[in-house]
Simulated assay, not measured.
Amino acid sequence: MKLLFSKKEKQAQPKKEKKVKVRTGGKLKKSVLFLWILLISSLAFGIYKNFTAIDQHTIHETKIIEATISDTNAIESFTRNFVKDYYTWENESEVLEERTEKLTVYLTEELQALNADMVREDIPTSSTVQNINIWSLKEEKENTFSVVYSVQQKITEEEDSTLTSSTYRIVLYQDEQENLVIIQNPTIWDQPEKSDFTPKQVENNGTAESETVEEVTLFLESFFASYPTATGQELAYYVKNNALPVIKKDYTFSGFINPVFQGKENQIMVWLTVKYLDEETKAIQLSQYELILEKDTNWMIVE
């Protein structure tokens, strides 16, 4: 009886169910999505930083250019005064002493000593400055500037006089109070020469109708005939936005040379040389213009 009960009890036990494997794909998809969002965000941030860096760099360069321009007048004036005193002398001891004293205003003590024997007391020539040209002014480093200039001198020896021209470079230092001193002696240099650049010639391209060209030509002939003596009020009938200045000169209009017309939307672009006779000098004056005209009730020069 006991055995029977145990057998039945065993038979009554339910069978164990097999576990079904469940794939957890949701978490993997969320991880991949998160990585894609992170990648796109990093890329967008990198592009933003790149454009921001370019903008900041551009602003920085603009500030440097403005600072250089503000210093130009003082340095140029200082240089011109120096050149005039440095290259002027006479073969007289008093004049040479005055020259030496003047140079103390421009040169460091070291350079004053270096230049002590430049013009000797027994020098047979005298020199006067005829012309000064400043070719370049550059900021070499903070508060230090280089200037390239040429000077034309009239050299006189006994009864003979000649003109000579040379180019030099000096270096100056400017302190916080904008005071200047030359720290490098005039050194032989080269001056700019003529460039071989030739601008592209503009030609008529058929974009301006012949009737329009005739109208504009008549308008410009009328304008340039009265332009030299026109007042600001009279100029307003022909010109907008102060595109051309009042000149008040005694010129007589003589015609155009090689006018070129091109049309663009409601505007006409004109390239031309205007021929005038200068009544004061009796010479021919040739002025070149690039103009943009528009027509409202009548033609007007807008640029």
Rank of each mutant, 00 (worst) to 15 (best):
Y87Q: 01
L28G: 05
F261P: 02
E139W: 04
K16S: 08
T125D: 12
E178C: 02
V260S: 04
E290F: 14
L291F: 02
F82T: 02
S226R: 12
K240L: 15
N179P: 00
Q130A: 15
T88D: 01
A283F: 12
L38S: 13
W271H: 13
R169K: 15
E17I: 14
L4E: 08
E280Q: 13
T229S: 15
Q201N: 11
E139H: 10
M1Q: 13
I188A: 08
A283W: 10
V129T: 09
M300A: 09
E139K: 15
D250S: 15
L39Y: 06
E265Q: 12
Y168T: 07
Y48L: 10
G46P: 00
T156V: 09
T273P: 04
N266H: 10
S254G: 09
K19Q: 12
K18R: 14
E97G: 14
A67S: 11
S150F: 05
T68C: 10
K200Y: 06
L172Q: 04
M269W: 13
M118P: 00
E214T: 14
Y276Q: 02
G25H: 11
K49E: 12
E76R: 10
F261M: 03
V260R: 03
Q191L: 05
P14E: 05
I170K: 04
F219D: 05
I170C: 03
K240N: 15
